[in-house]
């Protein structure tokens, strides 16, 4: 598949204007678990031109119930494993994957200049840390975060809200992994799709959830 064939196929599906916006778009995915691995795949399939991936972890057998990894990738760094899969899906997407733990100190440096940032961590305190740091230290960036997708409640409880002009929050806001509810692929993927859709809307120039 040549670059021209890829562009022609996506232009036919999305129209020229939208394909040009997605192609020129760049988004960061912070955390490559059940949310982040699904989000990155949605963005790559849509033809987003550049993806910046951040995670410090490796692929574990306990991830396979909901995260977009394969048994032959067990033990690999998630950044490398997901980049491998994304290159199969979208070979012309520019992928920059960094194996690093994001902190209040390195976030302003590592995420500098990225217009749309996606919070896809699993721990609540880390979600709050990334959100506060991005919104206070990176005044140009939009943030799409997630809270509440555990268990098997209705998928209809998951929605996208605009909390601040640059801060969007997806999820049901309540279902906590700490309450003993497991994370189940379908409901996590619903939340991931909300986040991916909001990111694509932002890249398309839309600002409402």
């Amino acid at each position: 598949m040549t670059r021209d064939e890829w562009d022609a196929a996506l232009t036919e599906r999305h129209g020229k204007a939208l394909h040009e916006r997605f192609s020129a778009g760049c988004a960061a995915v912070c955390g490559l678990g059940g949310l982040g691995s699904n989000i990155a795949i949605h963005l790559a399939r849509a033809g987003v031109g550049q993806l910046r991936l951040f995670d410090f972890d490796t692929v574990d057998i306990s991830n396979l119930n909901r995260q977009q990894y394969f048994p032959d990738q067990l033990g690999m760094e998630k950044t490398a494993a997901l980049a491998q899969t994304l290159r199969r899906i979208a070979p012309y997407c520019k992928i920059i994957a960094q194996t690093v733990r994001l902190t209040p100190e390195n976030i302003p440096v590592l995420l500098q200049g990225i217009p749309v940032i996606c919070e896809a961590f699993d721990r609540a305190d880390q979600k709050a840390m990334l959100t506060e740091t991005v919104l206070t230290q990176l005044p140009e960036a939009c943030l799409v975060a997630a809270s509440g997708m555990a268990g098997l409640d209705s998928a209809n409880a998951i929605r996208t809200r605009r909390i601040l002009p640059r801060f969007y929050l997806c999820g049901d806001g309540q279902s906590d992994i700490a309450d003993g509810m497991g994370l189940i692929s379908a409901r996590v993927a619903v939340c991931a799709a909300h986040q991916a859709n909001m990111i694509l809307r932002l890249l398309a120039g839309e600002s409402e959830p």
């Binding site: 955390g31 678990g33 059940g34 949310l35 982040g36 896809a120 961590f121 699993d122 721990r123 609540a124 305190d125 979600k127 709050a128 959100t131 975060a145 997630a146 809270s147 509440g148 997708m149 555990a150 909390i163 929050l169 999820g171 806001g173 309540q174 279902s175 906590d176 992994i177 700490a178 994370l183 996590v188």
Partner: peptide
């Protein structure tokens, strides 16, 4: 004031 309280899972 808006307080956004995150829950775990991702």
């Amino acid at each position: 004031i808006e307080i956004v309280s995150f829950v775990g899972g991702g």
